[in-house]
């Protein structure tokens, strides 16, 4: 565990807490893509299957449970909580997210480190996480007015990705044989998509209200 990894995890945790805060206290999910949140729930469900087979640390297991619980509860709130569901931008959130799942599954079956059930699903979760933000990106471009909490959520998610890349660079130089091409390329693609997000985020603050 290095400082970049810890900071990355804490930033990721903070992003989820900001989103839960918005949903819980303001009872609003305006500007939040349910499709992206559903993809994240699938990402964590398929990646953390190893919670039953491998133990890394109490920290790891605890964080896995937090991300699993929070992602599924966010989806539950947006789908089934009446007041929250009413604020959902259903007409705008139309990205065909299932069209992302199938290509990621095929890619994971073709390109992986080991052909085992858990390993292929773990690889699938990496590919899917890389593109899971796309429905949110499309929704952001359509809604134009994003509130502070949604903006902070996106900002923190992007920070988490950037810090993970610093973590990989650090680990590459400090740990022998730390080479994970699949993780790195998927992570890099994901970070580049977030860079696009940041572009809109800063436009929002520099240009005042709307994103043009």
């Amino acid at each position: 565990m290095n400082i970049f990894r810890l900071a990355g995890d804490m930033t990721h945790l903070a992003s989820v807490l900001v989103l839960l805060l918005k949903i819980h206290t303001i009872k609003s999910c305006a500007g939040v893509s349910l499709r992206t949140q559903e993809l994240y729930a699938i990402v964590f469900a398929t990646r953390y299957l190893d919670i039953f087979t491998s133990f890394v640390s109490v920290y790891n297991t605890f964080m896995k449970l937090v991300f699993l619980g929070s992602s599924f509860s966010i989806v539950w709130y947006m789908r089934y909580h009446k007041a929250v569901h009413r604020t959902y931008d259903r007409e705008q959130d139309t990205f065909r997210h299932w069209f992302l799942v199938l290509p990621c599954l095929v890619l994971a079956l073709l390109i992986h480190e080991k052909f085992t059930f858990l390993e292929v699903l773990w690889t699938f979760s990496l590919y899917l996480e890389a593109v899971a933000i796309l429905p949110q990106l499309v929704l952001l471009q359509r809604t134009r007015n994003i509130d502070n909490l949604t903006g902070q959520y996106i900002f923190l998610l992007g920070g988490y990705r950037g810090l993970y890349i610093l973590n990989w660079i650090y680990r590459y130089f400090t740990e022998p044989h730390f080479v994970h091409w699949i993780t790195w390329i998927a992570g890099l693609v994901q970070t580049l998509l977030y860079a696009d997000f940041f572009y809109y985020y800063f436009l929002r603050f520099i240009g005042g209200r709307g994103v043009e």
């Binding site: 087979t53 896995k64 858990l118 390993e119």
Partner: peptide, 10 residues
Amino acid sequence: HDEYHEHDEL
């Protein structure tokens, strides 16, 4: 080496 040991990130 241990098959899943390298998945120590979240």
